[in-house]
């Protein structure tokens, strides 16, 4: 009867040691390309052409990447015009002007309300991983709460479809201040391949002010965890050489 208990006690600590230590490449996320310098402008153009979502743009012999459009298709990971590849998951960034990190009382205890504003569920699946023993976000003081009345942070996934636009706005309005918004996934940041269109606003920031963005399609759990740590001021945002642009690019 207590076999499960003994087995659990016998196995060592499985939880990731990520926040202080480096952890890489768990799960299925292939990572993402970073801006790469090629020998010639022709090679850089080749690199840009092979991207199906037009995330890569060529400037002379530099292939720049807009990570908020990258869908990790790995088309650019091999071949003659292969891009360099990032091996860690510190992907989150503050979203420019007006973005703020949390104040001191929220540093070690943050309650999160999650809104799926029309995502394909991939991001939601990754967020779910956070609550599981491996990532164990609770040990870092992050908690999911069912009601926005108790929430400090609104975590949004999806391209904000017309159906969810009002719900998203109402959820944000229902949260007591001070409050912050975390946009998770490329859809929420730029709309990526979905938006702007007749059915989706495209970006969360067009509805409510966003503080931290976690690019990725989907961003792996460690990247989302990094996003939360960036929001609470416990981690540095992604270095600028990796992320050259995170912008809304109309299709």
């Amino acid at each position: 009867m207590f076999g499960w208990f003994l087995r659990g006690a016998g196995s060592r600590v499985k939880t990731t040691r990520y926040p202080p230590e480096f952890d890489s490449n768990v799960g299925i996320s292939p990572g993402r390309p970073i801006a790469t310098q090629f020998a010639s402008s022709q090679e850089a153009d080749n690199a840009a052409v092979q991207c199906p979502t037009q995330a890569i743009t060529a400037h002379d012999n530099m292939a720049d990447i807009n990570v908020s459009r990258c869908v990790h298709c790995m088309a650019c990971s091999h071949g003659e015009a292969a891009m360099k590849w990032q091996n860690d998951y510190d992907w989150a960034t503050l979203s420019g002007a007006g973005a703020s990190t949390t104040t001191r009382p929220f540093k070690k205890s943050l309650h999160i309300r999650l809104v799926d504003s029309g995502s394909c569920d991939a991001v939601i699946q990754e967020i779910k991983q956070l609550a599981k023993p491996y990532y164990n976000m609770h040990k870092l003081g992050f908690f999911i709460t069912p009601t926005p009345r108790h929430a400090d942070v609104l975590m949004v996934a999806g391209p904000v479809t017309s159906h969810m636009r009002l719900a998203l706005k109402k959820t944000y309005d229902a949260m007591p201040g001070p409050k912050w918004v975390l946009a998770v996934g490329n859809c929420a940041i730029s709309g990526c391949v979905f938006a702007p269109s007749f059915m989706a606003a495209g970006t969360v920031s067009s509805v409510i002010p966003v503080d931290v963005q976690v690019p990725g399609c989907p961003p792996p759990p460690l990247a989302i965890l990094h996003g939360l740590l960036v929001l609470t001021g416990r981690a540095q945002e992604a270095p600028p050489h990796v992320t050259t642009t995170i912008a809304e690019v109309p299709l």
């Binding site: 809104v115 009601t147 926005p148 009345r149 969810m164 009002l166 719900a167 998203l168 109402k170 959820t171 309005d173 229902a174 007591p176 201040g177």
Partner: peptide, 12 residues
């Protein structure tokens, strides 16, 4: 004090 409408799960 901020007064907002009752939370109804984001319904219209």
């Amino acid at each position: 004090i901020t007064i907002s409408e009752p939370w109804a799960g984001g319904l219209r």
